[in-house]
Design a protein around this nucleic acid. Structure first.
Lengths: 183, 183
DNA sequence: CCTGGATGAGACATCCGTGTCTCATATGGG
DNA sequence: CCCATATGAGACACGGATGTCTCATCCAGG
């Protein structure tokens, strides 16, 4: 019988990614459990969202580890990062819009850590002469988030193929829209 | 006494941009009117959001007109567009996250028109050999939205200066993060 | 077989936001 | 000056979502 909290979180994430205003009852149904049991594991919607936030942070950290940001060229590291983070893009897009989390003062410190790791990657690319220096690492990081949200939206709306997700984002982020003669 | 609906909408947009879950009562207070009067002008939260959506669309259309997308190089047109749309970026970011509007089937057709106009700009740039052709106009359009949302967020959070808004977005969108030898 | 823990179903009270109403007040034009 | 109109303040009921509780059921382990 024992309900798997992980499975519940996955189901909740999948549902809330599509319908961010879903009821606790809908979340319970989506997870295949009753509302009572859902409330036994996550005391209220707030706790559920916090748990989802922790899950999203954990998946981001895992993607950051998997991408081995310190190895090889910064460009390749960005490419690996986007590829590794793609499965979590839907959840991240949900959390991104759940700005309730960022309006209060009790925002999870995990995001700052992630920001720092990604910013460090862009900084490494700048110091290595790979990336241009007139765009700040903070902006490049934020832009990466925005592009991933846009990419997730494009795929979700059916206007783009999931297999193009990584290519679209990385090519635009690194190469830009302008056509080049060389390279 | 006559309340200016335009002013109410501006105040509502400013508040909802910061706190998307604001109550009708909070919106009324922000606009300096009573909740009763607010409800006399906009019959319910839904109507208010629709009015904001219409305002956002109108501002987008105005920015599109002002940017004269058909004139000069596509790159310069993009640059003008971002500059012209900047004042509305906060409102657009709010509407962007108000995905409630897009979950139903009754989404405002105005967005499609705007999408088409921007897509046409990118397509013009591709046909003219100015933009690369391996990124679809639909993706470039969506990416522009995402970058504007990220830029608005960066400015709002104090991590970036408003004066850099246009430069950050246009440079990244067109030029990408990679450092170039020429140009 | 039996017992304890976990779950499902449902009832119930509560809170919050909303929509609606009334009444007093103030403003501006005739 | 008088009256129509708009506004502000507040009361009131409604609905939806939530939190909490009880009880029956089911399954696993002893």
């Amino acid at each position: 019988m024992a309900v798997d909290p992980e499975h519940v979180l996955r189901a909740a994430a999948a549902l809330l990614t599509r319908k961010s205003t879903a009821t606790m009852d809908e979340v319970a149904k989506a997870a295949g459990i009753s509302r009572a049991t859902l409330h036994r594991h996550f005391a209220g919607r707030d706790a559920l969202v916090r748990a989802l936030e922790a899950l999203g942070i954990a998946e981001c950290e895992a993607a950051l580890d998997e991408a081995r940001l310190d190895e090889g060229s910064a460009s390749d590291a960005v490419r690996r990062l986007v590829g590794a983070i793609e499965p979590a893009a839907g959840l991240l897009a949900f959390l991104y819009t759940e700005n309730q989390l960022f309006e209060g003062e009790e925002q999870n410190a995990g995001w700052a850590t992630i920001d720092d790791r990604i910013s460090a990657l862009f900084r490494r690319g700048q110091l290595g002469g790979e990336f241009r220096v007139d765009l700040t690492p903070a902006w490049l990081t934020e832009a990466l988030y925005g592009l991933m949200a846009s990419g997730a939206w494009l795929v979700h709306s059916g206007k783009g193929a999931p297999k193009d997700f990584q290519h679209m984002i990385v090519e635009l982020l690194l190469g830009g829209a302008l056509r080049r003669e060389e390279s």
